[in-house]
Every structure is written in structure tokens, then in C-alpha cells.
Design a protein around this nucleic acid. Structure first.
Length: 308
DNA sequence: AAGTTAGCCAACCGCATGGGT
DNA sequence: GACCCATGCGGTTGGCTAACT
């Protein structure tokens, strides 16, 4: 139905943290008269708060049956299994944990449990092991061809062409402070167009909306466009992590990250090298696996090629 | 010591729902 | 059925604090 929030109806109402005096007034009122009509509680209890705020304060903090302190391992396990079954139904989850509030559980989930699961390699949203999930989601070559609209190209042509993803980190150009420099991929030989609309055309040329000069890495061009900047200055692109590749044993163990005006824009996670490379873009929360990648031995000032 | 960053938690906000008129 | 109102729920925000630079 949509209604005005209580503070708009009564603009003089107090907001923010509760003082001990307010807590005492509310606690005394509820212990004497019990929980009834919340909208009348503030007036009767002598509080400059809206009923909604009083209800929340009581439920989340003042209620005498609340359990204080850290969550036990058993409670955490229960929350995880309940979340697996119920999803973000915090009230339903809280109903299974006496003395715990939905808000408390939600906060625990967002600040701690999510990260714990991710560390264990489990997707906190689906509760599926991430490796298994990626396996399910990694497209076949045929799917990739279809997904990227390589309609005219024959399979052989497709395979022979370097695969180009405009968000790949090597597109960020070089960092003079580091020994390894990654520069432009050959322009016209893209195997498929971008997942990003209007960035690269099917023939491999860049879309017209990209305005930065040739000397500017295309990723930053894209980002410049994305944020509607009018300047082609790429100095806003900052390499926040740029460790030297280890190519000697065909193993790549570093992760690159870049920021654009503080916005983390992508990571390249080559843990599956040499069979796959995982890439995260601003458009994908999860890493997507892309098959194969090869490179010339000396990356300095050279291109990287992506092929099957 | 001062500034910055990250984590945590309390509280707010908007929307959905259900009951009463 | 339409409207009003109270309550409940889940997502988000803001502020405090500790850790880090």
C-alpha cells in the first residue's frame, strides 16, 4: 500500500541511538502494561519516538528473554542450515533460535557467516561449493560461440582467433613501477564481441561510444564512458595490485586488481591455469571461467593471446 | 599522533500484509 | 471493493570502534 514513514508524519520525533533514560521508560512501560498497540506506546510511555521505533527497540534490545553475547558454534551451524533451507527469511530463522533476533542473525550472516562460507569455497547464496558451481556455469565452446554471436565464423575460424574480452586486466596498459607490462591486445582479431554492450563490435572494432585515444587502454575508455566522463584522461585508473606474473612453470599465481575512482573493477584469477582462466568483471559478482589462455614468454610490451 | 579503512551493530526506511471500517 | 491503519519483514545506512598505515 505504501505509506509515509512515521518520522515524516511526526517530524519532531527523536531518531538515532536510544539513551538509557529512553530505554528505562520503554522497559518500565512494557513490563507494566505489556505489548499492545505500538502506536500508542510512545505517548503513554512519555517518549519522543514513533511506535515503530519503540517496537524495534523492545524486540531487538530490551526484551528480557534475549540471549546476549556471542553466537555458539551450534547456533552458527543451525543458522547456516536454516539459511540453506529458507534463504534470507531472517524472521523464520530467528524463530528457530530462542533469544536471538532476526536483526542480530542478519547482521551475523552479513558480517561473518557469509565470509566463512566463502573461505570454505561455498557460495553463501546457493550453498553450493564454488568449484562445482563454476563447473556447472562454465559454458561449452559451442555455448560461448552462441553467447557471443559468432554466427558467421566457422568453428575453425573461431578457434584460430584470439579470444578477446574487453574487460581483461591486461587491457589496463602498463605500470611503470613494475617489471611486467601488459599492453594492448591486437585490435581487429577478436573472436567474439563483448559481453558489454556497445564496447566492441562483432568485427572487432571498438564501438563508437569509446572516445579515448588509442594510447589509452580500452578498459579505462570503457569506464570513462560508463561514468559519463568527458575527459580522456586515464589517470583515474589505478592499479591497486599488480604483481609480476610467474610464467616459468606455466603457472600464474597472482591476482590483478584495478580501481577506477576507487571502484574495484575487475580481477583476473588464473588459478586454473593453464586450462582455464577465471575472470571477474564489474558485471559479474562471481568469477567466470574462460578456457585457455596462452602468452608469449616475455610479456613486456607484448600482447597476450587467448585461444583454444 | 593523525588519518584511513574495515568490521560490526543499532536503527531506519520502504514495502507487504492483514484487519477494521 | 476501496481505503486507512498498525504491524512485520528484509534491505540498507550511519556511526562507533579497532586495526592498520
Amino acid at each position: 500500500m505504501g505509506r509515509q514513514s512515521c518520522n515524516l508524519v511526526k517530524p519532531k520525533l527523536r531518531k538515532g541511538l536510544w539513551s538509557p533514560e529512553e530505554d528505562e521508560k520503554l522497559f518500565n512501560y512494557i513490563t507494566i502494561f505489556g505489548v499492545g498497540c505500538w502506536s500508542t506506546v510512545p505517548k503513554l510511555a512519555g517518549l519522543q519516538r514513533c511506535g515503530k521505533s519503540c517496537r524495534l527497540r523492545w524486540i531487538n534490545y530490551l526484551r528480557p528473554d534475549l540471549k546476549r553475547g556471542m553466537f555458539s558454534q551450534e547456533e552458527e551451524d543451525l543458522i547456516i542450515s536454516l539459511h540453506k533451507a529458507l534463504g534470507n527469511k531472517w524472521a523464520q530463522i530467528a524463530a528457530q533460535l530462542p533469544g536471538r533476533t532476526d536483526n542480530e542473525i542478519k547482521n551475523l550472516w552479513n558480517s561473518s557467516l557469509k565470509k566463512k562460507l566463502m573461505k570454505l569455497g561455498i557460495d553463501p547464496n546457493t550453498h553450493i561449493p564454488i568449484s562445482e558451481k563454476e563447473e556447472r556455469e562454465t559454458p561449452s565452446l559451442l555455448e560461448m560461440e552462441q553467447a557471443f554471436h559468432v554466427k558467421e565464423a566457422s568453428r575453425d575460424q573461431f578457434l584460430s582467433k584470439p579470444i578477446f574480452d574487453p574487460l581483461l586486466l591486461c587491457e589496463f596498459g602498463h605500470d611503470s613501477n613494475h617489471s611486467t607490462q601488459l599492453q594492448q591486445i591486437p585490435g581487429p582479431n577478436f573472436g567474439f564481441d563483448s559481453i558489454i554492450p556497445n564496447l566492441a563490435n562483432i568485427d572487432g572494432s571498438m564501438a563508437e561510444t569509446v572516445f579515448c585515444s588509442d594510447s589509452t587502454p580500452r578498459m579505462s575508455s570503457f569506464l570513462c564512458n560508463e561514468v559519463g566522463e568527458s575527459s580522456s584522461n586515464s589517470s583515474n585508473v589505478e592499479m591497486v595490485e599488480n604483481r609480476t606474473f610467474s610464467w616459468g612453470d606455466d603457472k600464474l599465481d597472482s591476482v590483478f586488481r584495478c580501481q577506477y575512482n576507487g571502484f574495484k573493477c575487475e580481477e583476473l584469477k588464473p588459478s586454473l591455469w593453464p586450462d582455464q582462466v577465471q575472470l571477474r568483471t564489474p558485471y559479474s559478482e562471481a568469477y567466470n571461467s574462460y578456457p585457455l589462455m596462452s602468452s608469449s614468454e616475455d610479456l613486456t610490451g607484448t600482447s597476450m593471446e587467448f585461444f583454444q
